[in-house]
Design a binder for these strands. Structure first.
Length: 368
DNA sequence: AATCCGGGGCG
DNA sequence: CGCCCAGGATT
């Protein structure tokens, strides 16, 4: 068979398989470009099963581009709580405002205009244009690179940005005439359901017959992907301060800055320890904690270690020890706030603090 | 090209 | 429970 024959085989069999096996997903019940767009942003780095309930709630709360554009940012962030990569939510709302103002509320259907939207890169632009408008643009994500690496037995390191460009050319060539929407979804669906990262289901694969990677016995070693460096350990000390008198039943928390790590989210007051030994020392930790917090405008007296938790990012690994403390003076900056259980449920928290405070508010004010 | 952004699932 | 997975923005 020629290369063209193989490519045609791939497209035909993949489309036939997709028509039989495609999952019934909420965003597949509509071709509204806004629905496709929101789903694609949510699906970045996030699994389908996780996204489904978020997508349903998001669409109920922000049914149109205009409603998203006009909403308070805090509402959008709250709707995103737990999904991670919170800049996606802020970019999505900024882009909704772009669409409302520049395109009369209609998601544009040309590549330059879609790619100019905040949070829309090469993959998402291709996904929107192909899935919503059936334009023959490639939508190359990690699934697609894995499927193509295996089917064509390619050794290129998919961690390298330059490799994605080559994959896009290949993926575009493969799109059967007039079938961009189904084909691109089929390619990703195969990667999600059959051609999975660690244990590919070759025996149920519609294109196994001509899969060069499988024929070479290499399906488990492809795609080639260089490793990222491990997250850097960071030791942090946090305080749990319970209110008294007028603030009884409340806990002192603060809001993170509007930019950077976990932008705009809420947390227990905490500081970085200079090293692991101070962090773990029952004598040194409370002294360091009080000193460092005082420098941030919060005078406290740390009492005892009440809980530990970890939070792993791509590049950082937080080890957090929580100390109970009492306030030695009123907070000097406006980032601090006394919250009760209802506030806790309304505000957006990184997972580590949501877990700690959730335990506190549900277990009779006991954080452990 | 390298680094900064979370969270979840699999073996 | 260690290891793997993975788009876009920024620099």
């Amino acid at each position: 068979m020629t290369r063209d024959d193989i490519n045609r085989f791939f497209g035909t069999e993949l489309l036939a398989w997709y028509r039989r096996e495609r999952r019934d997903l909420p965003w597949r019940r509509s071709r509204d470009p806004y629905h496709i767009w929101v789903s694609e942003i949510m699906l970045q780095q996030t699994r389908v099963d996780t996204v489904i309930p978020y997508f349903e709630r998001f669409m109920a709360r922000f049914p149109t581009v205009g409603s998203l554009a006009e909403a308070p940012e805090a509402d959008v962030l709250k709707a995103w709580e737990g999904l991670g990569y919170y800049s996606r939510a802020r970019n999505l709302q900024a882009a909704a405002r772009q669409v409302a103002e520049l395109h009369g509320g209609a998601v544009p259907r040309d590549k330059a205009a879609v790619s100019a939207l905040k949070g829309v890169g090469p993959y998402t632009a291709g996904a929107i244009l192909s899935i919503a408008y059936d334009l023959p643009e490639p939508a190359v994500d990690g699934n697609v690179m894995r499927v193509l690496s295996r089917f064509y037995n390619l050794d290129d390191d998919i961690a390298k940005p330059s490799v994605r460009v080559g994959m896009e050319r290949l993926a575009q060539e493969l799109i059967p005439e007039g079938e961009a929407s189904s084909f691109n979804q089929a390619l990703m669906e195969l990667g999600a359901l059959v051609c999975t990262p660690r244990s590919p289901g070759c025996l149920s694969c519609p294109v196994m017959e001509h899969c060069a990677g499988r024929l070479a016995g290499r399906e488990r070693e492809l795609p080639v992907k260089s490793k990222a460096k491990p997250p850097k350990p960071v030791h942090r000390l946090a305080v749990l301060i319970e209110g008294e008198g007028e603030w009884a039943g409340r806990v002192l928390v603060r809001r993170r800055p509007a930019e950077g790590l976990l932008a705009g989210m809420w947390e227990l007051p905490h500081v970085e320890a200079p090293n692991e030994s101070v962090w773990s020392s029952g004598d040194d930790a409370p002294v360091w904690l009080a000193g460092a917090l005082a420098a941030e405008g919060l005078s406290v007296k740390a009492q005892q270690h009440v809980a530990s938790a970890e939070h792993v990012f791509t590049h950082l690994h937080w080890f957090v020890r929580v100390w109970s403390a009492e306030l030695a003076g009123s907070p000097e900056t406006e980032v601090y706030r006394w919250i009760d259980r209802a506030d806790f449920e309304r505000l957006a928290w990184p997972k580590v603090f949501k877990t700690l405070l959730g335990a506190y508010f549900s277990q009779e004010r006991n954080i452990g």
